[in-house]
Computed example of a mutant assay.
Amino acid sequence: MTSASPAPSLRERKKIRTRQTIRRAAYRLFAEHGYDATRVDTIAAAAEVSPSTVFRYFPTKEDIVVTDEDDPVFEAALRSRPADEAPLTALRAAIHQTLDELYVTPEAMAEVHLRMRLVATVPTIRARMKENAAANADLLTRALTARTGHAADSLELRVFVGSLIGGLTEALMYWAESGLEEDVRTLVDRAMTVLDRDLAD
């Protein structure tokens, strides 16, 4: 197994807290007034920061919804999996671990539900999520290059990563569009089973 990532520095922890404060203020306002009616300067005032600080952490209002602190947790979970584990098995376990670590409280799940409802109903957020897919692809490519030995620019790895991101994105959209009533872990498993077995079942 690879070693765990080092703990974030004090500076990084402060940045994470500021991001979370801005995001939580935004979610509260989105829930009360709607996404389109909520201005960035209103979010800044509620978070007790300047509008320029909001834009420093979130270049667009849509980024408040589509970005989160999941990536370092997921990458550390994936890198901690046994080196001889099949890629999809390792990815499935890392996703479950990330969900279990970050989304265990009712408040956290309420935020996830609000985010997914916004993704499902606001076209600009869906568009921004697609734009940000490249960053997710880079993260997976880094982790899987070390795990599989495939070159980062190999066709096989690019197809695998693209299929995985597309499958997980569709699973989340299905979850949002079907009312968020199913367990997201089950839907993630179903999506990864399709990638593993094709449509044979």
Rank of each mutant, 00 (worst) to 15 (best):
A77P: 04
S80W: 00
E75T: 06
A127M: 10
Y57G: 13
E107A: 15
A46F: 05
P123V: 00
A44W: 01
A135V: 14
A108R: 07
H96F: 14
T148A: 05
P82N: 06
P106Y: 10
M116Y: 13
G149T: 03
A77N: 12
M109F: 07
D84V: 04
V112L: 12
S52L: 09
M116C: 14
T105A: 08
A151Y: 00
L118S: 06
T124G: 05
I43Q: 02
R92S: 11
R81Y: 01
V122S: 03
A135L: 13
K61F: 10
E111M: 06
D100A: 13
L99Y: 04
R115N: 02
F55H: 10
Y103E: 09
A134Y: 00
A93L: 12
E62P: 02
E75I: 11
N132D: 13
L139E: 01
P87G: 08
E75V: 13
T148Q: 03
V73P: 06
A134R: 07
L118Q: 03
E75M: 15
A151S: 14
P72Y: 06
P123T: 00
R115A: 11
H96V: 07
L144W: 00
E131M: 15
A127V: 12
N136Y: 09
T121E: 14
R128H: 04
F55Y: 15
L78I: 02
